[in-house]
Write a protein that binds this DNA or RNA. Structure first.
Lengths: 150, 150
DNA sequence: ATAACTGCAAATCATTTGCAGATCT
DNA sequence: AGATCTGCAAATGATTTGCAGTTAT
């Protein structure tokens, strides 16, 4: 499980978000938030749903979908479309902004995901905002590599 | 329609690929390749399928799927997962390497795709290769923006 | 001739939706 | 009390699959 102070903080954030938007504070939403913040890697809806069940917290998959959408809107998770199988999620608060190197074999199977940070991304973003007049809210950068021989 | 010499080149590439992999040279495959290279933006399978029909080249959607997979393996198209609606494709030969700004509404619908090039990406890639010892073969960079008020 | 390809329809699978009953406020 | 949320099952929609007939080699 994630550090208690992190859990507390993200619960506060969710609380504020719900107050602001007049949403109900259900047991399901807070529990799912807690479990999401105990996951240390990317997960899809099915994995999270099974994980909750394992931990004896039974919810419907519909609620998992709904709650992840809520957490997404509250900025508490990030959603990735790595492939056309299913969307992947990861916690996004207290989780330094990072990008990914995805190591895949010839068949496209993901062997390893390496996270990295590079400040130049932010500079590119700023320049693009200046050029386009758009407000960029987020980004995804993936580098794809073949495995090393070793 | 794309420039004749480009069409010729990509047909040659597909030809070689088919020879190498002992695949059949069907009318459908070459026609679809031609139409793909006449598209000037990203498209999904449904759009391409409708486009083909408009141009009086009727194929089944299954063949469109199969052929795009083939072109993907041959390195002639690039596949993108902008959202969880449908995969998007674009021609990838004689098409300068570029990245994308994706303008989406609150519901995640793609409103506009802006292409850009920034040399700093290549520098980041080189540094990552040095640090990790991996050989990076490709990348995807997406910036996400909300639409402008106008 | 025969193995691969196409087209059609059915199957699959992630996600969404509709609605009845439960539960926050 | 009343609106929202949850859970279930059915609907949806992109993609895949199975198979019969067609076509490239």
């Amino acid at each position: 499980m994630a550090k208690p102070e992190i859990i507390k903080s993200v619960k506060d954030i969710l609380n504020n978000y719900m107050n602001k938007h007049q949403l109900r504070k259900t047991q399901e939403r807070f529990k799912i938030l807690e479990f999401v913040y105990s996951m240390d890697k990317h997960f899809d809806v099915d994995e999270l749903h099974r994980f909750l069940k394992e931990k004896d917290f039974v919810v419907s998959k519909a609620t998992v979908y709904n709650t992840l959408e809520l957490l997404l809107n509250a900025g508490l998770v990030k959603k990735h479309y790595f492939n056309n199988h299913a969307a992947y999620y990861e916690k996004s608060f207290f989780n330094k902004t990072h990008d990914h190197i995805i190591v895949r074999d010839e068949n496209g199977n993901v062997l390893k995901i390496i996270e990295f940070c590079d400040p130049r991304i932010e500079l590119i973003k700023k320049d693009l905002e200046k050029i386009t007049g758009l407000q960029i809210e987020d980004h995804d950068l993936y580098f794809f590599a073949k495995p090393n021989k070793n």
